Simulated assay, not measured.
Amino acid sequence: MKRAKAGALRRRHNPLRRTTDRIESWLTALTVLLIALGAPLAGTAAGGAAYDTLLETVRSQRAQRHLVWATVDRAAPSAPLDPDPETSTPRDSRLRVIARWTARDGSSHLGQVGAPRLVEPGARFRIWTDGRGRVMPRPMDTSTAGAHAVLAGLGVAGAVGGLIEGCRRLVMRRMTARRHRRWDEAWERAYQDWGRAGAGS
């Protein structure tokens, strides 16, 4: 411990240490501090805001979507060409049926819906609809909202950390370019003095 302190003091009072070296050290320390504190704070704030927004979506969907009973009328005709082969599977096409259901407002509907399992005509299962009977996806639940909020927070924290590090690298690159220009100027002056009387060469 004593040896480490002595080494730090020697580096601090080293006459060969330039002002730019001190600036780089402070810049690195500041970058570490900002990434360690700023990125998590930004991620937490973004995740919290996303969670609040998603919870509002959860409440809205739960209020607007309702479970109703659907009765299978017949199997749905298989489509000759799958419109989205990346998201649909042969199993999905087997589970498509023509069914009848009554909406929350009392209106009757007949349409193609996805069944939860292979079913025969006359079988019943529950589907999600809006107030006018249009088939809707299942409402988002709070666990899904929480997972999306966590991902949003992690994404923002990573982006903030990358932005801070990018700024540090940009400043360091400019400082290095400036240092190289000064070295070139110093070498140019030294080259002009070489071989002159009284130039010390």
Rank of each mutant, 00 (worst) to 15 (best):
A4G: 06
A4S: 13
A4M: 11
K5R: 15
A6I: 13
G7Y: 01
G7W: 13
T19A: 15
T20A: 10
I23W: 11
I23G: 09
E24Q: 07
S25P: 06
W26F: 13
L30H: 05
V32I: 11
V32Q: 14
L33D: 13
I35S: 10
I35N: 06
I35C: 15
A36M: 06
A36W: 01
A36S: 13
G38W: 04
A39P: 07
A39W: 08
A39N: 11
A39T: 09
P40Q: 11
A45M: 06
A46D: 02
A46R: 15
G47H: 12
A50E: 06
Y51A: 12
Y51M: 00
T53K: 15
T53R: 05
L54M: 03
T57K: 08
V58G: 05
R59V: 01
Q61P: 03
A63G: 08
A63Q: 07
A63S: 09
Q64S: 05
Q64E: 05
R65A: 01
R65I: 03
L67S: 14
L67P: 14
L67T: 07
V68R: 15
W69T: 13
A70R: 00
T71C: 06
T71E: 03
R74L: 09
A76R: 01
P77Q: 03
A79E: 10
A79L: 15
P80Q: 10
D82Y: 07
D84W: 15
P85W: 04
T87M: 07
S88G: 12
S88T: 14
P90W: 13
R91W: 09
R91Y: 02
D92A: 10
S93L: 12
S93E: 05
S93P: 02
R96I: 10
V97T: 11
V97F: 01
D105E: 13
G106N: 04
S107M: 06
H109Q: 07
Q112D: 15
V113S: 01
G114L: 12
A115I: 05
A115H: 01
R117H: 11
R117N: 10
R117D: 11
E120H: 05
E120V: 14
P121R: 08
P121L: 06
P121F: 13
G122S: 09
G122I: 15
A123I: 07
R124S: 08
F125P: 07
W128A: 08
G131Y: 00
G133R: 04
M136G: 00
M136Y: 04
P137D: 01
P139V: 02
M140N: 00
T142K: 09
T142N: 02
T142L: 00
A145F: 13
G146L: 07
A147I: 14
A149S: 15
V150M: 07
L154N: 07
V156Q: 02
A157N: 03
A159T: 04
V160S: 03
V160N: 01
G161M: 03
L163E: 03
L163W: 01
I164L: 03
I164W: 11
G166N: 03
G166Y: 02
G166M: 00
G166W: 03
R168D: 06
R168C: 12
R169D: 03
M172Q: 14
R173E: 15
T176P: 04
H180A: 11
R181N: 14
R181L: 12
R182I: 08
W183Y: 10
D184K: 08
A186E: 08
E188A: 14
W194F: 08
W194C: 04
G195E: 08
A199V: 13
A199N: 12
S201D: 04
